[in-house]
């Protein structure tokens, strides 16, 4: 036993630790290019150039979707905390506490109601940063709340999915979120209100095998990993390498599981258009749309020159 290395050295290390500003530069996971974080933020977290779609936080997603970045936050029910008294290498309650501190969220799903191109819409977002977006009781209740809110307010429901699957630390109660959310999906369907699923990177496991595959329209962001079994599990089962592009958005479209792969910049307009048609909202007359002052801007610029 070495008391110097065991006790003293870590303390000295922390004492001299320098604060290094983090995350100023973001490395594209695809091409490796370095991009300034402000440029990425301004581009809806899509790497300019490579078009790689980075993950977005739930709040940023809602900001990007709702007109004027304004929405009414819908409270989601509180659930029993750690009913299994689960611990692996860490206690589940500690993991939860850490995830809450890291994200500022209560759990993995946020729900909001606001306007999307003038159309009242309920949106729920699953945030991968909160324990891998895993589906536990809280997330399940939040998704049910989202679906029920859409139903009671007569709005379309849009769900941004991103999840590694079930939250194992909640055991069978996590698995039960699959039928529970499906009940709420069916009730929205009975009310004849649209349900659009946006599959983002990554979406796997029990989440894919329930509400994520039950939308009226399935949209996927480019390059997202979407599947039931994770690639590692499949590789272990079949003991061979997976083909390139396997379980990516484009592959799912080729296999008939999603309707379209849409660039993040075009998501809002696509969703608004689909919901407008499904809700049979009268289209904005073309003449009226052209009356907006937007086209004058380039003219002014030209005048200034």
């Amino acid at each position: 036993m070495n008391w110097i290395s065991d006790v003293v050295r870590p303390k000295i290390k922390t004492l001299f630790k320098r604060e290094v500003p983090e995350n100023l530069w973001i490395k594209c996971p695809d091409t490796g290019q370095m991009v300034f974080h402000k440029d990425v933020e301004a581009n809806l977290y899509v790497i300019p150039g490579s078009n790689y779609h980075l993950r977005m936080t739930a709040t940023n997603r809602l900001k990007a979707m709702f007109d004027e970045a304004r929405w009414e936050a819908i409270p989601t029910p509180e659930v029993a905390i750690d009913p299994l008294k689960f611990r692996d290498e860490k206690r589940y309650v500690d993991r939860l506490r850490d995830a809450k501190a890291k994200t500022g969220m209560q759990d993995a799903v946020l729900v909001g109601v606001g306007e999307v191109e003038g159309q009242k819409t309920t949106i729920a977002v699953q945030d991968f940063e909160f324990m891998g977006g895993s589906l536990g009781m809280a997330a399940g209740e939040a998704i049910i709340t989202g679906l029920d809110t859409a139903r009671s307010r007569g709005t379309p429901f849009v769900l941004f999915v991103s999840s590694g699957g079930a939250r194992m630390q909640e055991g069978i109660l996590s698995l039960m979120q699959m039928p529970r959310t499906t009940v709420a999906v069916q009730r929205l369907r009975d009310a004849k209100l649209p349900y659009i699923v946006v599959l983002t990177n990554p979406t796997t496991g029990g989440v894919t095998a329930s509400y994520a595959m039950l939308g009226d329209v399935h949209i996927a962001e480019p390059g997202a990993l979407i599947g039931f079994a994770g690639p590692r599990v499949i590789e272990q089962t079949i003991r061979e390498k997976l083909p390139p592009g396997f379980q990516r958005s484009e592959y799912l479209k080729d296999h008939g599981m999603v309707d379209m792969v849409v660039h993040r910049h075009d998501l809002k307009a696509t969703i608004a258009r689909l919901n407008g048609i499904m809700m049979r909202t009268p289209a904005v007359p073309a003449a009226e749309a052209k009356d907006e002052p937007e086209p004058e801007a380039p003219a002014l610029e030209a005048a200034a020159e």
Binding site: T182, A209, A212, M213, L214, G227, A229, P243
Partner: peptide
């Protein structure tokens, strides 16, 4: 969990079966 199951939509098939039960 296999390639052929994934390419034919394992997740969707499970989701629809749960739904049919309900």
């Amino acid at each position: 969990p296999g390639i052929n199951a994934e390419e034919r939509g394992q997740a969707e098939a499970i989701a629809r079966s749960t739904e049919a039960c309900l």
